[in-house]
Nucleic acid binder design. Structure first.
Length: 553
RNA sequence: GCGCCCAUAGCUCAAUGGAUAGAGCACCUGCCUUCUAAGCAGGUGGUUGCAGGUUCGAGUCCUGCUGGGCGUGCCA
């Protein structure tokens, strides 16, 4: 409904633009309707008059008046008016709002979804933590930012691949293998210390014990670290995936860094950069002339020991991504890796790739505050709170919601005590309570034999024309636009913001207006449908965030 | 030093360049014989870090400061 109505009105605007602007039409800023921020200014609003006034050198207020004339009488509009210095405000007809409710009920779980990007393919790469230990709370934010972005893209029609890129090569993996080997040796009574900068967590001991169970003493002889790395990486990847499942995150594909070395992709990337004249050798290493592209220093691609640095396979990985034919690439990573982003972009530019489709969501750091104190997120010293601990203690609903609620771009203080509270202060329950309440009303309606079919057949619309009812209907009307806006901007937190607004409006309505009234059967029927509409939207919104919508609380 | 990000109510955070900057928490005052009080209604609380600039219009864009987070490695 939303897009149909706005398209219609924008059409009128376009025609007006053509007539009023004449020759200036081509240069004029485009203008369209969007939801009014303040409902006292109508339902939809546009600043078209401001945009056009400049090129015409005319008074925007006067222009607004002309545009309003053209809008009035439109079947979707109850009232159009010019306001302030030149705003154009529109109130929607009650028929549009009623149709919205009908659509929400009929489309049910599809309401708010769209086919705008049907046929397009997107990849969201996220988490991508190296399998050197279990995921800790620092990874949770990226997991939720990525997963929710993926859900939003799906909701607007993209075919989405959720991918986990993991580093199973390189120095850190060697350190992992050596750490496990040391613990393994200790199990046989050998006095072997962990390597310096080794992994000190207890999980290393468990993995060593698992190696012993699986392989006995057969790995003692050779002393090779590689088998330990492989064993540990397998174990840890499956632990990571299990933990992510607890958060309701599932990946479609994993991508191994080692495969890029083995299939020659890394080599080829280096060769092509060299063929572009973008590299040189110095001190036994191969350097990328990134300063030519504005970097403040050149970067090493291949170390003097012949091993590539971390950035080189990352460039190769992105070439693979491009080759796989996605229309949209989304990379989620911690902001502490932002310098890596620049180097990959520089290399891709040198190689002739366009960066338009490549989006990075660099989520800012998280700190957790508990009992008035900040608690440690992670440390190489083996003391950390894991993702699993967090989900076990808070539950997936709360964990997901708290992270989804905030813009990924703002540093976040996670209020553990609030998250832990099962009360009205906790916004998750505030939203879920809306759903539970609607279900409760629905059940009562069933007991009383009141129609709660998902359609508006035979409904008297009069009871839905009240101010409060209208406000709710309008919020339902906006929902598809919230989803679209959040998806296109990759700003998932717009959804929680909307849902909280809807919840507040609904709870207020519930308090002020009895839905099922024995003395008003017509009104009860109509309001019941409205409540069902709210229920659908709340359920759909929570489902985008993968938060449960309980029927009872 | 240089680069990226941030600075909004006491606290945690919102606000496609638009109208009187909004929520939640905290604090104060009321509201349960009714479909769930995990709720509602109202109140207190702001020079949007500072100084300039662009614009019809700036919390939002630009410049310079101040203060913070993170980078700045032949680690990832």
């Amino acid at each position: 409904m939303y897009f149909d109505v706005v398209d219609e009105l924008n059409q009128v605007l376009q025609e007006a633009a053509r007539d009023i602007l004449g020759d200036a039409f081509d240069q004029a800023e485009p203008a369209g309707f969007s939801p009014a921020r303040d409902l006292s200014h109508g339902d939809l609003t546009t600043t078209a008059a401001f945009n056009w006034a400049k090129s015409l050198k005319r008074n925007p207020r006067e222009l607004a008046g002309e545009i309003v004339m053209r809008l009035s009488g439109h079947p979707s509009i109850e009232k159009a008016s010019a306001a302030g210095p030149g705003f154009i405000n529109v109130s929607l007809s009650s028929q549009v709002l009623l149709n919205t409710l009908g659509a929400a009920l009929k489309q049910d779980s599809a309401y708010g979804r769209s086919a705008k990007y049907a046929g397009k393919k997107a990849m969201v790469e996220f988490v991508s933590a190296n399998p050197t230990g279990p995921l800790h709370v620092g990874h949770v934010r990226g997991a939720i930012v990525g997963d929710t972005a993926a859900s939003l893209l799906e909701a607007v029609g993209y075919e989405v691949t959720r991918e986990y890129y993991y580093n199973d090569a390189g120095v850190q993996m060697e350190m992992l293998g050596r750490s496990v080997r040391a613990r393994y040796w200790q199990l046989f009574g050998l006095d072997e210390a962990l390597p310096e900068n080794g992994y000190k967590g207890d999980y290393i001991r468990y993995i060593a014990a698992a190696v012993k169970t699986a392989k006995g003493d057969s790995l003692l002889e050779s002393g090779e670290w590689r088998p330990f790395t492989e064993f540990a990486a397998d174990v840890l990847m499956s632990v990571i995936m299990d933990d992510l499942r607890k958060l309701r995150v599932r990946f479609d594909t994993t991508f191994s860094e080692r495969s890029l070395h083995e299939n020659g992709s890394v080599r080829q990337t280096i060769d092509e950069l060299t063929a572009q004249g973008a590299t040189y050798e110095q001190d036994g290493a191969l350097w990328l002339k990134s300063t030519d592209q504005g970097d403040d220093k050149d970067r090493v691609l291949v170390k003097s020991d012949g091993e590539p640095t971390y950035v080189t396979p990352d460039i190769a990985y992105h070439r693979e991504k491009y080759a796989r034919g996605f229309d949209l690439l989304v990379n989620v990573m911690g902001h502490d890796h932002h310098s890596q982003v620049e180097r990959v972009k520089i290399a891709l530019t040198i190689l002739g790739y366009r960066l338009n489709a490549l989006n990075y969501l660099l989520n800012q750091m998280v700190s957790i505050e508990r009992g008035g104190e900040k608690i440690k997120l992670s440390t190489r010293e083996g003391q950390f709170m894991t993702l699993a601990d967090m989900v076990d203690e808070l539950g997936a609903d709360v964990t997901r919601y708290f992270f989804a609620q905030r813009s990924y771009n703002s540093q976040m203080i996670f209020d553990w005590d609030l998250a832990k509270r099962q009360s009205m202060d906790n916004p998750v329950y505030y939203l879920q309570y809306v759903h539970a309440r609607t279900c409760s009303i629905e059940q009562k309606a069933e007991e009383r034999g009141i129609d709660r079919a998902p359609n508006l057949d035979g409904i008297d619309p009069a009871p839905l024309r009240g101010e409060r009812e209208r406000e709710l209907l309008l919020k339902l009307f906006f929902y598809p636009n919230v989803v679209m806006d959040a998806a296109e901007r990759l700003e998932a937190h717009l959804v929680p913001a909307y849902l909280e607004d809807l919840a507040k409006t609904f709870h207020g309505y519930y308090q002020a207006q009895r839905v099922l009234d024995q003395d008003d059967p017509e009104g009860s029927r109509a309001r019941m449908k409205l409540v069902l509409g709210v229920q659908r939207v709340m359920r759909n919104g929570l489902s985008l965030l993968k938060v449960d919508a309980p029927e009872r609380m």
